[in-house]
């Protein structure tokens, strides 16, 4: 692989999404309901992408929506769901129970070590734990290794080298330098281990502005970048906006009902709108800007979550 040295990587988000091929191994940035690359996820669904192999740590609507749209063949995440608050991920759960997706459930530290093996250019790394867990049954590719120094037996895992990672950033410049707010989750590791980084950002600004905020992921790892305001909605992208709990609750209801109601959600928010500008209109500009008012007061912040 090589670094990406083009001076200007800005493209519209639909062009950026074409870098993800059918059947690709795709890492998803962010985690739970924070900084998920939702604009790219929606665009992949609009373009009818299929057979994806998604990898990551703990995720929610990004994975569930891709499953709902029939885009995923293999799911290798450590968790997919909506936490205690909104419960199990309905489309993921249904597909796993029917066997229409292959679930290679993984574990956060195992994924981290597999990404590091890829970053380090090593053929494997040992991991702690996993022995004694039935997670082993889901991973026939794991091996065992005996430490030449201590004689301990450890599980050995191969490198995980995604074809592409999708990341949503707060700020980017035209070269693809990205500024993220913490938690970065696995985004830095994904960026270094993957063949390509495709990013969206709330705003594309000058290099000086990104550098002043702090470059989390350097442009030489990034293949394409698109400016998409509210590109993480309905997950959060602080400090720009909090997550949209009512929207997520509505999605979970529709996805749990399945069939017609789920088709309705997809039509209304994804396939029935031509692009992300259309998405923002359907969600409502006023509704979206209210998510940015978390910072006005603790009362306002709490009010978004009740």
């Amino acid at each position: 692989m090589g670094f990406h040295l083009d001076p200007d990587k800005r493209v519209p988000v639909d062009r950026a999404a074409t870098l993800v091929a059918d059947g690709a191994m795709v890492a998803l940035g962010g985690g739970l309901s924070a900084r998920l690359p939702m604009a790219l996820v929606r665009e992949l669904i609009r373009q009818g992408r299929q057979g994806l192999h998604v990898v990551g740590s703990a995720h929610g609507i990004d994975v569930d929506l891709l499953v709902a749209a029939g885009a995923i063949a293999v799911c290798e995440e450590s968790y997919v769901g909506f936490e205690q608050d909104l419960g199990l991920a309905p489309a993921f759960r249904r597909a796993a129970e029917r066997g229409t997706i292959e679930v290679r459930e993984s574990c956060c530290d195992t994924i981290l070590m597999q990404l590091r093996a890829a970053e380090f250019g090593l053929p494997f790394l040992p991991v702690r734990g996993v022995r004694g867990s039935d997670i082993l049954r889901l991973h026939p590719e794991y091996g065992e290794v005996r430490c030449p120094f201590t004689a301990e037996t450890l599980v050995a895992v191969p490198p995980l080298r995604p074809d592409i990672v999708l990341i949503h950033a707060l700020l980017a410049d035209r070269q693809g330098n990205l500024h993220l707010e913490q938690p970065y989750v696995l985004d830095e590791r994904f960026a270094a281990a993957s063949r390509n980084v495709v990013a969206t950002a709330e705003r594309i600004v000058s290099t000086e502005e990104v550098a002043a905020a702090g470059i989390t992921i350097p442009g030489h790892l990034v293949a394409a970048v698109s400016e998409v305001p509210f590109g993480a909605h309905p997950s959060s992208c602080y400090p720009a906006y909090a997550y949209d709990r009512p929207h997520l609750a509505g999605y979970v209801r529709a996805a749990a009902a399945g069939d017609g109601e789920l088709a309705c959600y997809l039509e209304r928010f994804v396939t029935g709108v031509p692009d992300e500008e259309g998405y923002r209109k359907v969600v409502g500009e006023e509704h979206l800007s209210a998510l940015g008012r978390w910072s006005e007061s603790t009362t306002a912040w709490k009010g978004l979550f009740t």
Binding site: S78, A89, C108, D134
Partner: peptide, 22 residues
């Protein structure tokens, strides 16, 4: 599981199967 499909697929363990060891 996974030879037989489950009645309920839960969310998954996050980091537990590494962390529970150490």
């Amino acid at each position: 599981y996974p030879a037989t499909l489950p009645k309920v697929k839960l969310g998954g363990g996050g980091g537990g199967c590494n962390l529970a060891a150490t």
